[in-house]
Amino acid sequence: MSFDQSDVEKIAHLARLAVPAGEARALGGDLSRILDLVAQMEQVDTSTVEPMAHPLQMTQRLREDRVTEENQRELYQSVAPATEKGLYLVPRVIE
């Protein structure tokens, strides 16, 4: 597996990461080596194996459909970088 600069840029965009052009090559090399390691998985035939969903075969717990959380907006927004009137501020998205 080998990643060139455009592969790295494509994945970086999907991951919403900015990779400076000068670092793309080295990062591509790292990713290639990691995926070469991952490729060891191909050594084993798993066509008849069920994928593991949970180590203890536990199913998702259900609970009654009722409100259990109280509103703590002010507390949670106290750690936000930018808020106004209870809203999170981001750069303008609608012109």
């Binding site: 790295v8 790292d30 990713l31 998985m41 084993v44 069920e50």
Partner: peptide, 30 residues
């Protein structure tokens, strides 16, 4: 952290799920 996010994004990207994540979960079962 960036390396692992990139690897994870790649293996979960469209068309690669069966070859990577599903395969890995089968090996987990083994």
């Amino acid at each position: 952290v960036k390396r692992r996010i990139m690897i994870g994004t790649y293996v979960l990207s469209a068309g690669y799920y069966d070859a990577f994540y599903l395969k890995a979960q089968k090996i987990r079962q083994l």
